[in-house]
């Protein structure tokens, strides 16, 4: 398919049309995928954007309207996500179009994004300890500073129940002390739950999806 598109892009007229089709046809598929992923309706989007429902209907019908940047900004605002408008090589645009999946496309809203970053902050030290390897997924300096200064992330965002102070201490510890502290908590929780199970390997680090330490995700730091 990529080779087919690459061949078509040699035609200047098709190149121009291809860019337009990404907006006129591709954007409606993105908006619909976001509505589906969030469990929202066209009416909801109309209210959030302040647009009339027929206009929203047009926005999600492939090729029916030509959305401008301001309209897309309002839609992004409604979904509480970012909007990237930038100039790129044709191959990059073609690759994005090729990889786009209307069945799984989703962009987290800001709160979900922060919860995701927070979960990485908690899991990364565990991965390090399990593998004895360098950090694989720890957030960069900006995210670390952001999380350390954000109270909401420790207050149950994303389903976690760590008190804010504990999370801030963990993220601010440079991980070494935090790892030991968290591991101790895990073992403590296992003991109080009456379970003798002690994980000996880390399926997360091995590429698995399920945490071997469910108690990590639900424990309360005393």
């Amino acid at each position: 398919m990529i080779s087919s598109i690459a061949e078509k892009l040699r035609d200047p007229e098709y190149r121009r049309a291809f860019v337009a089709s990404q907006m006129n046809v591709g954007i409606p598929f993105q908006i619909r995928a976001l509505l589906k992923a969030r469990g929202r309706t066209q009416d909801w989007l109309a209210k959030k954007t302040g647009m009339l429902q027929p206009r929203i209907s047009g926005l999600i019908s492939p090729g029916k309207t030509r959305p401008n940047v301001e309209t897309l900004r309002r839609v992004a605002d409604a979904f509480d996500c970012g909007l990237a408008v930038r100039f790129v090589p044709f191959t990059e645009l073609a690759e994005w179009s090729e990889k786009f999946d209307p069945e799984s496309f989703n962009v987290p809203d800001f709160n979900a994004e922060m919860a995701l970053l927070q979960s990485k902050q908690v899991i990364a030290p565990l991965q390090e300890q399990a593998q004895g390897a360098p950090d694989l997924v720890a957030p960069g300096p900006f995210v670390t500073r952001f999380l350390a200064g954000t109270h909401a992330v420790g207050a149950g965002a994303g389903g976690y129940s760590f008190p804010t102070g504990s999370v801030a201490a963990l993220t601010g510890s440079g991980t070494a002390a935090g790892v030991l502290e968290l591991k101790a908590i895990v073992e403590f929780r296992s003991a109080t739950n009456g379970s003798e199970h002690q994980p000996t390997s880390n399926p997360i680090a091995a590429g698995g999806n399920q945490s071997p330490w469910p108690e990590v995700m639900s424990c309360q730091i005393q």
């Binding site: 049309a17 046809v25 591709g26 209907s57």
Partner: peptide
Amino acid sequence: LSPQEKADADEFLKNMRKTIDWRPPD
């Protein structure tokens, strides 16, 4: 088809081929 119609058809049909459940308005 014109070049624009071809590009739009390409984008639309590519996304439909990636979609499991075909339903209105598509």
